[in-house]
Amino acid sequence: MFFTLYMIFALFNMQDIFSIIDFFEPYTGSKYSFLGAELLFETLGIILVELGLALAITAFRYTRKEKKDAIKIIEEKFPTLNERLRTAYDNRAVDNIIVKDLLNKVTLDIKPVTSSALLDRRLLIIGIGALFLTASGSTYIAITGYHTDMTPKNLPEAIENIPFISDKDSGLLTLEESEAGKNGEEASGSSLEKITVITIEGTEVELKIPPGAGQGITIKEEGDERENTFGQSAAYDPEAIASQAYYENLPEGYRNIIQNYFEELAKE
């Protein structure tokens, strides 16, 4: 269980979680000496977490596991002891001739039975195989440092990308089609395309606000002025704007093209 958890935690860079948690953040990056080796706080912490989780899961599985009857296992594997072993065990405290005879005979017959008879060989082989695989995987990851790009910080994003969990395609804004239908208007399509904000009976009004306009639906009346608290920004010299792809020295001919473009724009 420990090796399995180590592989999972190492693949997904779970040690980065300490940098997210405020309590542990100050300690991230600090080194501690452990058995002659220098270990980062994150490494030490994640190992302790893995150990704790492994113990907890193992203890939980052990308590949930159905207890096996050793007598039944022995009786199945050694038919000569069938029913006799159980009877002898249940009556071990009884003192009479017949029970003594039974106990003596069962004691003789049980001598060939060894403790390995109680083992489930199939499960043992599977367990050893799983241990070998997980130990090999853990060793490989520890030596090569192989890991994915996923970190605990990416978890919210990863959860959103899981199908049936994210709500991107649910369509939050919907208008009732019947309202437009009542006024003779054709019902608008998706709310992301055209939104009809005003209807006048008998008149076709073409007044649409593109999505993301941000003002919502308002009806402007005479004399109603919007309070303008925003300061108009100063006009800027187009030539002074920094571009993401800014070149100090443009190729020959490019400067003239750009200058002519902006001059035309200013004339319009």
Partner: peptide, 12 residues
């Protein structure tokens, strides 16, 4: 007397 001494398991 011997009849009553014959042991029986709890399961049975």
């Amino acid at each position: 007397a011997l009849t009553r001494q014959v042991p029986i398991s709890e399961e049975l």
